[in-house]
Amino acid sequence: MSSTTRNALLKLALPLIKDHGFTRSALSLAVMYSPSGKHTAPLNDTAVDALFGEGDEARRTLMNAWLDDARVSLRKSYSQDSDTATTARNPSLGNVLKTRLSKNEGVLEHLPEAFALLATPPTLSSLIFPLTLDPRPAISHSMSVAAEACKLSCDTSVGATWYTRRATIGAIYTAAELHQLYSPTTAHDFLDRLLEESQTLGMAVDETFIYAKYIVDAWKGIITSRGITP
């Protein structure tokens, strides 16, 4: 199948995550929701491997597709051309981050396992370093949300301040996302409190390695809080 077909199936799989999680089953079932109506049976394992990657790599593909979709959806929420725009031309940073948190609500129960999957090193690395988590997906996710939020809220920081600002916002968002898994109904209030204290938090994450450790430790908290072993 072509990359166009692959992308179409990934899009069809996204609504299935709520009930099936970030699983190969969600990917397998997606073909049955094709507008063509030609498929009456799920994809077999061989087809899922060929399209999305072998074993857990297929699940990582689905998780990354969901993260990309959440980012695009956030942007559309504040687009001037969108019929579903949620706010005025210059939304506050807090409102943008809350909107991004809302994108998690339908799949909250599945996120800890998905984060654990993304943070798990490749098979060979995990055999050599079984307790090591790969920090790159956590940092990439955090920085992606921070960059999008700054852009949508018209943040004008430049130079070194640009990096510090995004590091701070990324750390705040990650902490709020962790809190959301424990207490969904208080996540927005928690985010507001962190934003109010952002000057102090910004000093704490001013150095890149400190910021990276904060994000990775937060993801470890997300993973271990649900008793999940990557």
Score class of each variant (00 low, 15 high):
residue 194 L to K: 07
residue 161 T to F: 04
residue 228 I to C: 05
residue 46 T to I: 06
residue 176 A to Q: 01
residue 206 D to Q: 15
residue 80 Q to K: 15
residue 100 R to K: 11
residue 160 A to V: 10
residue 109 E to S: 03
residue 71 R to N: 01
residue 168 T to G: 10
residue 67 L to K: 00
residue 94 G to H: 01
residue 223 I to Q: 01
residue 62 L to H: 08
residue 7 N to M: 07
residue 150 C to K: 03
residue 206 D to F: 10
residue 69 D to H: 15
residue 66 W to T: 08
residue 101 L to Q: 06
residue 41 A to H: 05
residue 97 L to H: 04
residue 134 D to K: 15
residue 54 E to V: 09
residue 116 A to Q: 06
residue 9 L to C: 02
residue 163 Y to C: 07
residue 42 P to N: 15
residue 134 D to L: 13
residue 58 A to E: 05
residue 227 G to A: 11
residue 113 E to Y: 01
residue 118 L to V: 07
residue 83 D to V: 08
residue 139 I to M: 08
residue 147 A to T: 11
residue 195 L to V: 06
residue 90 N to F: 07
residue 198 S to L: 01
residue 23 T to I: 13
residue 147 A to S: 11
residue 112 P to S: 07
residue 218 A to Q: 14
residue 10 L to R: 14
residue 35 P to H: 04
residue 183 S to I: 09
residue 116 A to Y: 03
residue 223 I to G: 05
residue 80 Q to F: 14
residue 93 L to E: 01
residue 76 K to E: 11
residue 50 A to M: 03
residue 9 L to A: 02
residue 41 A to Q: 10
residue 157 S to I: 03
residue 10 L to W: 13
residue 68 D to T: 09
residue 113 E to C: 01
residue 162 W to I: 02
residue 23 T to W: 10
residue 220 K to Q: 04
residue 153 S to M: 10
residue 183 S to M: 07
residue 179 H to W: 07
residue 108 L to N: 10
